[in-house]
């Protein structure tokens, strides 16, 4: 009890410091980033969606290691969950309970739209809200719905992991092309003065690669959990 009370007191004091610093911040915050991207973002990256422009161009190096983190975590999760990697996909939903028919029917109805929406979000990530990471998550959800529809659908985790790692190498490769055209790593390989349509080739390629990679990574994680569920 003493512990909880003292904890609350301490947290309230810390809260006070937080509030003071935020009040301080509201008086002095910098709009440098905002102004810079508003003026130069579109012309430099060719991406109408500035967020995509940032994570595929200005800060591509971060995104590479974000993808790398996903690889590391997926490999870690599959290593820790002990089953043999060659074993075919889980069937625990059949074991535990039969999925309601209503659910299956609606899943069948929704599945193609979800997949299409995910692919749309990936491919149009540079002109509208979305991008590789977000779209990849949607595609992964669509693939997971597939498990409800047809439990016998078999995917081997081993294959997923292999494809995912090859994709990661490809993403690094695509990011490095600019070294041969511009002499610097991790940016758009086309010239700064190229038109938006030309620059979009690079953005769409990279978004698609990241999208597939994220989708596969999430599916692999989910499959590892399904196998544990039995």
């Amino acid at each position: 009890m003493i512990r909880r009370v003292s904890l609350v007191v301490m947290l309230v004091i810390i809260f006070g410091f937080f509030v003071f610093s935020i009040l301080d911040l509201e008086a002095f915050f910098s709009t440098f980033g905002k102004d810079y991207f508003f003026e130069n973002g579109l012309s430099e990256t060719g991406s109408v969606n500035l967020v995509t422009g940032i994570y595929l161009d200005y800060r591509l190096f971060d995104s590479l290691f974000e993808a790398g983190l996903l690889i590391a975590a997926v490999s870690g999760v599959t290593w820790i969950s002990q089953h043999e990697i060659t074993e075919k996909n889980a069937t625990f939903m059949l074991d535990r309970q039969s999925t309601p028919t209503l659910f299956v029917t609606f899943s069948r109805l929704v599945y193609p739209f979800m997949l299409m929406f995910g692919i749309y979000v990936i491919l149009f990530g540079h002109v509208s809200p979305g991008g590789g990471f977000q779209g990849g998550a949607i595609v992964a959800t669509a693939i997971l719905i597939l498990y409800y529809i047809d439990v016998q659908k078999a995917t081997s985790i081993d294959k997923i992991l292999t494809i995912e790692k090859i994709l990661f190498l490809t993403i690094i490769g695509v990011g490095s092309i600019s070294f041969f055209t511009k002499g610097t790593f991790f940016t758009n390989p086309f010239d700064l003065s190229a038109s938006e349509q030309v620059k979009a080739i690079y953005l769409i390629t990279l978004n698609a690669l990241i999208g597939i990679k994220v989708a596969l990574g999430l599916v692999a994680i989910f499959t590892a959990f399904l196998k544990e569920g039995r």
């Binding site: 709009t31 980033g33 905002k34 991207f37 973002g41 500035l50 967020v51 422009g53 940032i54 994570y55 800060r59 971060d62 995104s63 974000e66 991008g131 990471f133 977000q134």
Partner: peptide
């Protein structure tokens, strides 16, 4: 500001 949004995806 677009930077927070890009960083928060990560």
């Amino acid at each position: 500001d677009p930077i927070p949004q890009a960083l928060m995806i990560t």
